[in-house]
């Protein structure tokens, strides 16, 4: 008799890898063949995982069309199997996959559109966080301020693209009406994807300086270095106002001083 583990591994090879071999000898053929019955499970797995990708990447799907999306999804699923019983974790590598997916090579902006959708998905499900304790921050002595490390809200992400991805996102929403042309020469964007207090998600285009400031802080740079990078990126930046704004809008939510 075949053990349970061997049977499950054999099932996975037959259904996920299409390496059917003689696995159908384990399947009773009452009426329908074993191969037919296994095919149902192959379809179910494909539908389940394709559905998960469609839920996270509706804009990419709309851009390429349903048939193309399903084709791409099937290739992705074969190359990057699901690793969790929670389907919300599936699809993380889809943007990178699209970048090297030859049939989509002409759609140069597609991987970035997918990046935006994955960021949206993660922000949607991210933890909440109370605002930064400004009273405690004010107690940090002037000479230590440069050493401060700040944290972005768990529901905040930064994304840079050479294409106008918020515009592409917007014209591909179900409720969009009016002009739906996108001018790719409109240029790129530096974006903050952030969830507001009311749980709605917003795309905020940032200027070079504030983008660099947040990116440096998110990358665990100390405050002094982050400020230098921000000013280097945009010498005209009103740094104090910019910092204040991201604290008061709940983008920067925590800080600590590293112990020496």
């Amino acid at each position: 008799m075949h053990g349970l583990r061997e049977l499950q591994l054999g099932f996975a090879s037959a259904v996920l890898d299409g390496a059917e071999g003689d696995f159908d000898r384990h399947v009773r053929t009452a009426g329908l063949s074993g191969a037919r019955r296994l095919q149902v499970y192959r379809n179910n797995a494909l539908l389940s995982l394709t559905g998960a990708l469609e839920a996270v990447y509706p804009v990419a799907r709309r851009v390429v069309g349903e048939g193309f999306f399903r084709y791409a999804a099937a290739q992705y699923i074969a190359r990057h199997p699901s690793r969790s019983g929670d389907l919300h974790e599936f699809g993380e590598h889809f943007p990178l996959f699209l970048q090297s997916f030859a049939p989509a090579a002409d759609l140069v902006y597609l991987p970035d559109v997918a990046r935006l959708e994955w960021a949206y998905h993660r922000v949607f499900h991210a933890a909440g966080h109370p605002p930064l304790d400004v009273t405690a921050l004010a107690r940090v002595s002037a000479e230590r301020q440069g050493d401060l490390r700040f944290e972005l809200h768990p529901a905040a992400r930064l994304l840079e693209s050479a294409f106008p991805i918020p515009r592409i996102w917007q014209v591909n929403q179900d409720d969009h009406d009016g002009d739906s042309t996108v001018d790719l020469s409109e240029g790129g964007v530096k974006l903050l994807i952030v969830r507001r207090e009311n749980l709605e998600i917003e795309f905020r285009p940032l200027e070079d300086g504030e983008f660099e400031l947040l990116r440096a802080l998110a990358g665990d740079c100390d405050f002094a270095t982050a400020c230098e990078r921000a000013m280097a990126a945009q010498p005209t930046l009103d740094l104090p106002a910019c910092f204040q704004r991201h604290v008061s809008q709940g983008v920067l939510v925590a800080f600590h001083l590293p112990t020496d």
């Binding site: 008799m1 349970l4 591994l9 996975a12 499970y41 179910n44 389940s48 019983g85 599936f90």
Partner: peptide, 19 residues
């Protein structure tokens, strides 16, 4: 619904054996 770390994200049948 998974084996070898790969998930089907589907409900798969067990063999009904003592094991």
């Amino acid at each position: 619904s998974s084996v070898g770390g790969r998930y089907f994200n589907d409900l798969l049948p067990l063999p009904y054996t003592e094991e």
